[in-house]
Nucleic acid binder design. Structure first.
Length: 359
DNA sequence: AAGCCGGGGAA
DNA sequence: TTCCCAGGCTT
């Protein structure tokens, strides 16, 4: 294969690479943590999480022994929370199946929960210099353009071809350096929109550039459907306590906490909210009154659009409440891992004001 | 093979 | 608005 590509990329990388904390380590634990955090996540967004994660859990043992709640709280706001739950599972796998020793090969790494083809290749090559090519979104773009691949890259058959090409291109003597160079090049130079092909070190070899297809490659076929959902959260305060509940499996935000929720297909008119509260919720209390109703907040997820309304209620004495409601002191609301949209509400003037007016 | 899982930043 | 990010799991 044309090994000059690897050499050009490595030369480029030596000049332009970013100084990132996980690059100063060969510890597979550090590399693994960074790779999980950076799945579908930009470096700028994940960086502070990485620092805090390593500070809080310096070793795989610390992570394995931590309660899941603590891990989720640390992960709060980063999204794709299954990553945090799977990391916990994987840490315990390493303690129990691998005797606390981090797996060293691509094949063994694949056994870990939450570690797929990309992450196994990344840890194996970056930490142990195993000659296996990483293929992430950056690499897909670079290779698809370099080889002028017009087929949709989200087709499994196309992805398979790209992985083959990536491994043929791989510098077998310096897999760690090569893989990082390839990804960094995609992240910084061969960017999705308007890449600077004029100054590109590969511009003489790039088929997409030659065929004027740079803006068309990589192409994708899949379109996703967006579902609209309307959430009505009840912040029920009764003598300094407030209710939470924990979200279960099969929906967004598994394992995170939220206020008692009423969800509807269609929006509810503000004047119908009091009736909705008494009809759709299963709690009884004396002197229930509505203190504040927020405007609907639009919260965008990958597959869903949420319209979230917060209703702050005060009740004198709770007579009965559903068993899965969790009583929390208002002073301890920040102990729970909550979705971003709820965290924002907890810090909003309207919530703080309603909370203060209790006393 | 297709659907689902968050949140944010760039253009 | 649209795209997509150091992807992986479930069905």
């Amino acid at each position: 294969m044309d090994n000059n590509v690897s050499k050009e990329l490595i030369l480029w990388y030596m000049i332009y690479k970013r100084d990132l904390p996980w690059r100063n380590s060969h510890d597979p634990y550090h590399i693994w943590v960074s790779e999980i955090i950076l799945q579908q996540t930009r470096v700028a967004q994940g960086l502070s999480y990485y620092i805090r994660f390593i500070e809080t859990f310096p070793s795989i043992k610390n992570l394995a022994e931590a309660p899941q709640e603590q891990i989720l709280k640390l992960w709060q706001g980063l999204g794709y929370y299954s990553r945090a739950r799977n990391m916990h599972t994987a840490a315990k796998q390493i303690e129990e199946l691998f005797g606390g020793q981090f797996p060293k090969t691509y094949k063994e790494l694949l056994l870990l929960k939450g570690v797929g083809d990309y992450t196994a290749a990344a840890v194996a090559s970056l930490a142990f210099n195993e000659p296996v090519a990483v293929v992430d979104g950056n690499v897909i773009r670079v290779i698809a353009r370099l080889f002028g691949i017009e087929e949709a890259v989200d087709k499994p058959s196309t992805l398979k071809d790209i992985k083959t090409l990536a491994n043929e291109l791989l510098n077998k003597e310096k897999p760690a350096l090569h893989n990082q160079a390839m990804m960094e090049f995609g992240a910084l130079h061969c960017v999705p929109v308007n890449p600077d092909c004029h100054s590109c070190v590969l511009n003489s070899k790039c088929l997409a550039l030659k065929n004027k297809l740079v803006s068309k490659i990589p192409s994708k076929s899949l379109k996703l459907k967006i579902r609209n959902r309307h959430f009505y959260y009840l912040a029920i305060n009764s003598s300094g306590k407030i209710f939470f509940q924990r979200r279960g499996a099969g929906d967004i935000w598994e394992g995170l906490y939220e206020f008692p929720l009423v969800e509807t297909e269609e929006p509810i008119a503000p004047e119908d909210l009091p009736e909705m509260i008494s009809e759709k919720t299963n709690f009884k209390a004396s002197a229930i009154r509505i203190i504040d109703i927020s405007n609907p907040v639009k919260h965008i997820l990958t597959h869903q659009k949420l319209y979230v309304t917060f209703i702050y209620l005060k009740a004198d004495k709770i007579e009965s409440a559903p068993p899965h409601w969790i009583v929390t002191e208002t002073s301890r609301i920040f102990d729970h891992a909550v979705p971003r949209v709820i965290d924002r509400y907890l810090h909003s003037p309207s919530f703080i004001k309603a909370n203060q007016n209790m006393y």
